[in-house]
């Protein structure tokens, strides 16, 4: 585990701990007098004397004491958990580094060989618990990550869908627009253009020639939305009957069964615009008059 991890975890843990404890023991909070009380005792000489009494002789080797003094660079804010723990950590790290250098200089074996097994401070079962907790945390984090990703993907998909719809609407509008334009042009030129011009006008800007939609159903009136034949094609029988069935269907759509019949004879915009049955151009019609 890296340093940042542990530290962060520590910090978070502390916060959790404090929030959980704050209600139960609010008095635990460190309250202190704002100014030092006057009658407090400070016997400097007595302290120093006592210190010299109990302290070990000066020439004691360092290996007996194993104590290291580490400079604290700056004042630490006590209430900032992270900063405080970081300062302790750096103190420990710096101290250990110095101590290990000293030990190494002495040439004493001081690191535990990997095959040295002995009783540890925490039991194996306890460490097992610690490990399982770590794993659980990791799993939780991963799950959260996954959920977040899924959410993100959903959002993006929605956006893309909206964009697509917009584009489609725009295209449709453009097409309609172009048709209108073409019509206006034709009106302005007074329908006098020959068949060739008309045909030219029929082509759209994007080069697609006007086509009847292929979805058109045979025998069904153009305005009929009730389904007509399509309704009938629902259940398909056996294979052998296939051809017969098709034939039958066609006839039924043509002569009855399925869809409203009344609409068949009504004009729609499609039929009015359908000029196929007219003589196009002025060739044949005008010949007689000329004579």
């Amino acid at each position: 585990m890296s340093i940042e991890d542990t530290l962060e975890e520590d910090g978070m843990g502390d916060v959790d701990h404090e929030t959980s404890e704050s209600e139960s023991e609010s008095e635990q909070e460190d309250v202190r007098l704002t100014e030092p009380s006057k009658k407090s005792i400070y016997n400097r000489d007595g302290l120093l004397e006592k210190l010299s009494d109990i302290s070990w002789p000066d020439n004691v080797e360092w290996i007996q004491k194993l104590s290291i003094v580490v400079d604290q660079e700056k004042e630490v804010d006590v209430n900032d958990d992270l900063a405080r723990e970081l300062s302790f950590y750096t103190q420990a790290l710096e101290g250990t580094r110095q101590a290990f250098e000293k030990l190494q200089a002495m040439g004493i074996p001081f690191l535990r060989p990997p095959d040295y097994y002995a009783e540890m401070v925490k039991t194996d079962s306890h460490m097992e618990k610690v490990k399982s907790r770590l794993l659980e945390q990791k799993k939780k984090i991963e799950e959260a990550e996954e959920r977040r990703k899924a959410r993100e993907a959903k959002r993006i998909a929605k956006e893309i869908q909206a964009q697509k719809l917009k584009e489609r609407a725009k295209q449709k509008k453009e097409e309609i627009e172009s048709v209108k334009k073409w019509r206006k042009q034709r009106q302005q030129s007074g329908f006098s253009m020959g068949g060739k011009d008309g045909d030219m006008g029929l082509t759209f800007e994007d080069g697609k020639s006007f086509e009847r939609s292929s979805k058109r159903r045979p025998g069904v009136a153009p305005g009929d939305r009730s389904g007509g034949k399509a309704r009938h094609g629902g259940n398909k029988g056996m294979k052998g009957m296939d051809k017969k069935r098709k034939n039958r269907e066609y006839r039924e759509t043509k002569f009855g069964f399925g869809g409203r019949k009344g609409l068949k004879k009504q004009n729609t915009s499609d039929t009015t615009n359908d000029m196929r049955s007219f003589n196009q151009g002025n060739m044949s019609g005008n010949k007689k008059r000329k004579r």
Partner: peptide, 17 residues
């Protein structure tokens, strides 16, 4: 999450104050 040998001698670090 740490663990260490039971009974190994600790290194004592003191802050300079």
């Amino acid at each position: 999450t740490g663990n260490h040998l039971k009974g190994s001698r600790p290194i004592l670090t003191f802050s300079s104050n």
